[in-house]
C-alpha cells in the first residue's frame, strides 16, 4: 500500500527538518510509554471517588447540560426510567412519516429497561441492533425508519455534558445519530469529570486500554445544532433534534 510513496514523502520531511535526524531524537519522549505520576493520580482519584463526589459531578453535568439544551433526568431506579421513556415515546411525534418505531443498542443496561414490554401497549415496535441474524441492510432501514434511538454510553464527561461512546458489536453508531430523538441511559458511576480523566482512563486503565478507542469513539454534547443562517441557533441540523439523558442513581 503505497510504501514507496510514503518513503519519499517522509524523506522530504526528514530533509526539511534537517539535523538532528529522527534516529537520534528521543522517540520515548514523544510517546510516553510509561504512565506519568499525573495520570496515576488521576486514575487513583477516579477509583476512590465517593458517593458525595459522584453527586457533585451529576450537578456539574446538569449545569453544563442547560445551555446546550441537553435534557438530563436523574432517576433513583430503573423502572422510573422505563416509565419516562414510554412517556416520551407516547408524547413525541415521528419526524418522517407517521409510523412510530424505536431502535436500541444491544446493551445490558438498555435490556434491563425491558422496553419492548413497556412499548407493546402503545403498539410501538422496538428493534435492537445487536442480533447478527438481521441482515445489515434491514438493520440500516430499521435505524432510518426509527424516530427514537436508545443507547447507553461508556462515560459521560460532566464538565461539558458529553456522552462518550465506543463502536462495538450490537451498538450501532447510527442509533445516536439518524433518529430524530436520541435517548441515552447511564449509571451515576459512569460520570467522569473531563477530557483529562477520559484520556487517562482510555490510555492507562488496564481494563479500558485493552479495548482502546475502538475504530470509532464518538463524543456527543447535546442535540445537533447550526447557526449558519444569520447566526440564528437552530437545533436538529442533521443529527437528533433532542437528546435526553437518564442517569440512574441506584
Amino acid at each position: 500500500m503505497g510504501t514507496a510513496n510514503q518513503k519519499e514523502f517522509i524523506n522530504r520531511i526528514k530533509m526539511a527538518l534537517g539535523k538532528p535526524f529522527a534516529e537520534s531524537r528521543q522517540k520515548a519522549d514523544l510517546f510516553n510509554s510509561e504512565m506519568s505520576a499525573e495520570s496515576r493520580a488521576i486514575l487513583e482519584h477516579i477509583k476512590n471517588r465517593n458517593a458525595a463526589e459522584r453527586k457533585k459531578l451529576l450537578e456539574t453535568l446538569i449545569e453544563a447540560a442547560g445551555p446546550i439544551n441537553l435534557q438530563v433526568i436523574s432517576c433513583d431506579d430503573i423502572s422510573a426510567v422505563t416509565g419516562a421513556i414510554a412517556g416520551l415515546v407516547r408524547a413525541k411525534d415521528p419526524e418522517w412519516g407517521d409510523q412510530k418505531s424505536v431502535v436500541a443498542w444491544a446493551h445490558p443496561l438498555v435490556e434491563r429497561l425491558n422496553l419492548p414490554a413497556a412499548l407493546s401497549e402503545q403498539k410501538v415496535p422496538m428493534f435492537v441492533t445487536g442480533s447478527k441474524s438481521t441482515a445489515d441492510e434491514d438493520l440500516r432501514q430499521q435505524v432510518i425508519d426509527a424516530y427514537i434511538g436508545i443507547t447507553s454510553a461508556d462515560f459521560c464527561m460532566a464538565d461539558t455534558a458529553t456522552l462518550v461512546m465506543r463502536a462495538r458489536p450490537g451498538q450501532a453508531r447510527s442509533v445516536s445519530l439518524v433518529p430524530a430523538i436520541h435517548i441515552a441511559v447511564i449509571k451515576l458511576d459512569q460520570i467522569i469529570a473531563d477530557l483529562k480523566e477520559l484520556f487517562a482512563l482510555l490510555k492507562w486503565d488496564p481494563h479500558e486500554r485493552r479495548e482502546g478507542l475502538t475504530n470509532c469513539l464518538t463524543f456527543v454534547s447535546g442535540p445537533s445544532k447550526t447557526a449558519d443562517i444569520e447566526a440564528t441557533m437552530v437545533h436538529g441540523a442533521h443529527g437528533p433534534r433532542e437528546v435526553h439523558l437518564f442517569v440512574i442513581s441506584a
Partner: peptide
C-alpha cells in the same frame, strides 16, 4: 467548551 460532535475514527 465542546463541539456537539467529536469523533475519533481509526479504521473501517
Amino acid at each position: 467548551n465542546m463541539a456537539t460532535y467529536v469523533s475519533y475514527i481509526g479504521g473501517p
